Amino acid sequence: MINAVFSTEGAAEVLAVVFVGANSTRPFPDVLLFLSILTGVPVQTLQSHYRFFSKQQTLNAADPNLNIGPGHYVVQPNADEDPALPQLGRWANTVSLFPPRSAASSRAGPRPGSAGTVASASNPPSGVSTPRDDDTEASPEAVKRYARFTLSLGLRDRRCVVTGNADPDALEGAHIIPHSWKRQHYWGLPEDIRQTLLLDYQPLCIDDVRNGCLMEASIHAAFNMQYWSVVDEGDGRWRVVAMDKKAPSSIVGQYLRIPDPGSADNHLTYPECFVNPRFLQFHLQSAVFRRMRGAGEDDEGDYDDRDKPLGDVMKIWADEENFGRYVRSGGNVALAVE
């Protein structure tokens, strides 16, 4: 898997390191997309102003067909570039698929990319509770609500949008933006998503079919865990990408199945009321922060003196105790890894 690891002021010559785990290969355009999500630096800027290299090779960032294999890939500005270029050692605004478990856990300053990181700078007003990560309502109204949601998805999708399985006993309605956000009136979501759910998707809001799709139960569970997500190919197709080694291998590289022609109740065709692309983008962004943050295995492990800054960064991001020391010391690398 990919783990993007960022340096600090103490290791300024290493702006970023992309680690691809053992027995893995990745399309390089995906690597650029994930790094762009993590840093907020546009893909075009990464391609034109930064170089990517390992001990064995320098990569051609402009090659759309390039795949990269296991190893560490260092990211640095081109030698003649303006030093005012965006610094990749800075995290972009973090996003999380699920709401925080509690206000206290949010104030504690979770590790960047963790499931407890609030998705927006917007804070809920006082008196708004923060829900659990799942939606465990069991009231009759909740059962009816979910049944209506799943039935509407079934009428549109007819099958699992990932595998094509049409067995009704194997299928579930999957929310893209989790239903648990409703309990806190969507505070903490990016403002454009919040406004879409509250205003554009009335009266169903988060249960609108444009916030869901039909999936097999096991595929749905892996989607909620963000073991997999989807990348926009730019032509209306969404390709499944693995975000964790637990992703079902049979679906990686598959494309979401667009609904067959037909008309929905809102005067749109079924393809027109398929999942909102912004919601799928949000799932991918939050999956990148949660799953690709430098906490994976390191199958090399040995660093010479020249690689010490990289080794220190890996130690910080791969160990919660080291990371805690790093935060408490105000970003002092030496204190974090002593």
Rank of each mutant, 00 (worst) to 15 (best):
L88P: 04
V31H: 03
A62K: 14
Q87D: 15
F53N: 05
A62S: 14
P83I: 00
V17S: 11
S7V: 06
E9D: 14
A84T: 11
G71K: 02
N65W: 09
I37T: 13
R51F: 02
S7E: 03
E9G: 13
L59P: 07
T39E: 08
V74M: 12
F52D: 08
P70I: 00
A11L: 03
P27D: 07
E9K: 12
L59M: 09
N3I: 00
R51P: 00
L15Y: 15
V14S: 01
H72F: 12
F52T: 06
L88F: 02
A61P: 13
F6S: 06
V17C: 14
G71W: 01
P86Q: 10
F53G: 03
G69R: 01
G89F: 15
G71A: 05
L33S: 14
A61Y: 08
G10L: 04
F6G: 04
G69C: 00
V20L: 01
P83A: 08
A84Q: 13
L88W: 05
E9T: 09
T58N: 07
T45P: 01
R90W: 13
F6N: 03
T25F: 13
G40H: 14
P64E: 04
V31Q: 05
I37S: 06
F52H: 10
A22W: 06
N3C: 01
P29F: 03
L85P: 06
F52L: 09
F52G: 07
A61I: 09
N60P: 05
V31D: 02
F28K: 03
L15F: 12
Q76W: 06
L88Q: 01
A16I: 05
E81K: 12
Q44L: 15
H72G: 08
L88S: 05
E13K: 08
D30G: 04
N65A: 13
S36T: 11
V31A: 07
S7K: 02
V18G: 04
H49V: 08
L33K: 14
G21C: 01
I37L: 13
Q47A: 15
D30H: 09
F28D: 04
D30K: 03
Y73Q: 04
A61W: 11
G21H: 06
S7L: 01
K55Q: 11
F6L: 14
N23A: 10
T8N: 15
S36W: 13
F52K: 09
F28H: 04
P70Y: 00
Y73S: 06
N65H: 15
T25I: 12
A11G: 15
N67Y: 06
A22S: 11
G10F: 07
P29K: 08
